[in-house]
């Protein structure tokens, strides 16, 4: 490392220590940039792929109220993906590169979206638990050290709380309905509970990027801390719904001041990450179809139209 580079790195670390945000044109270590591109683009991909399991129910929502709520939510997810892609682009990557990385499977997205939404109650459970887990992580990220990422997160968090509430509202309605409807809500909880806990990622001791990310203040809380927060909040919420969380080991630990809970099936987690989840192939196919088969000609046509318009305006001026 040259003296100049050492000096730049010192200035960078001083800023991190002093809670001064890092902005796009500021000097930053290559590894910091690389970590952010990986994390922000993966986060963006999750928002975009996350539209698929929910989009599945737009045409079959049980009422107009539910349909417009779900439609607005899915639209928000698209917006969240766009805020995040823009934030990643400030680091020197391009939209095309990120799209290619997603479509070729080089980049990951949250594994939770590789689970199917097979009943309407799943839309409630996804809003309540999946968005609930995402919010825990995203609230932390509003304080992340990279300015554009933090600002995108502030916007996202403002919108995300509507998502969780509409999910909880769906669960509430089902739980106050017939025995069959309540059973449907319980079934959805049974299937979404463990995958939701996996959303926080591997345990701190196993997480390969965590330590450095904490030093750089990209992450401000560890995977296990966030997971614990989520369990504590959801356990109380389940009581309000009158549903039972599918974990016999879940119980309040007075001494620790938080809930104990059972161990996560990490084999399942890694299987889904590696592409062997129920919906991995469907999700990838839907994305590639949207971007390549059905999307590329639209982008080309719009480019051609814009070019033609600008040429005709040049003619007019001449």
């Amino acid at each position: 490392m040259t003296a100049k580079q050492k000096n730049l790195e010192d200035i960078f670390l001083q800023k991190i220590d002093a809670e001064v945000k890092i902005e796009p044109k500021d000097w930053m270590p290559d590894a910091y940039r690389k970590t952010l591109v990986r994390q922000i683009s993966q986060h963006a991909h999750s928002e975009i792929v996350g539209m698929l399991p929910e989009g599945n129910w737009i045409t079959r929502a049980p009422s107009l109220k539910r349909k417009i709520g779900l439609l607005a939510k899915v639209q928000d997810e698209a917006g969240h993906g766009l805020y995040l892609y823009s934030a990643a682009e400030t680091l020197g990557t391009s939209r095309g590169e990120m799209m290619d990385a997603l479509n070729t499977g080089k980049a990951k997205y949250s594994s939770i979206f590789n689970y199917p939404t097979i009943t309407w109650a799943d839309i409630g459970a996804v809003g309540w638990l999946v968005d609930g887990a995402a919010i825990m992580n995203q609230v932390m990220l509003t304080r992340t050290s990279y300015g554009p990422y933090a600002r995108a997160m502030v916007r996202i968090c403002k919108e995300e709380s509507f998502h969780q509430r509409q999910g909880f509202d769906i669960m509430m309605t089902l739980c106050n309905g017939t025995a069959q409807q309540k059973a449907m809500a319980q079934d959805a909880l049974n299937r979404w509970w463990w995958p939701s806990l996996m959303m926080f990622g591997p345990s701190d001791s196993e997480s390969q990027h965590s330590e450095q990310s904490m030093i750089w203040k990209i992450k401000r809380k560890s995977n296990d801390t966030l997971r614990q927060q989520f369990v504590d909040a959801a356990a109380e919420q389940a009581k309000v719904l009158g549903l039972e969380i599918p974990d016999p080991e879940l119980q309040w630990n007075e001494e620790k001041g938080c809930h104990d809970f059972g161990s996560i099936n990490w084999d399942e987690f890694w299987q889904v990450v590696k592409g062997n989840g129920i919906c991995n192939r469907d999700r990838m196919k839907a994305r590639v179809d949207a971007y390549e088969t059905n999307g590329s000609w639209v982008r080309e046509a719009a480019t051609a139209y814009a070019k033609k318009q600008s040429q005709s305006s040049i003619h007019k001026v001449a």
């Binding site: 917006g79 805020y83 916007r155 814009a306 600008s310």
Partner: peptide, 23 residues
């Protein structure tokens, strides 16, 4: 408030409306 991609001015305005002023 942020940035976006668009082919021309009109699309940029409409996308900006949909991305940044949904509420």
């Amino acid at each position: 408030v942020g940035s976006l991609h668009a082919a021309d001015e009109q699309m940029a305005l409409e996308n900006a409306r949909d991305v940044y002023t949904r509420r």
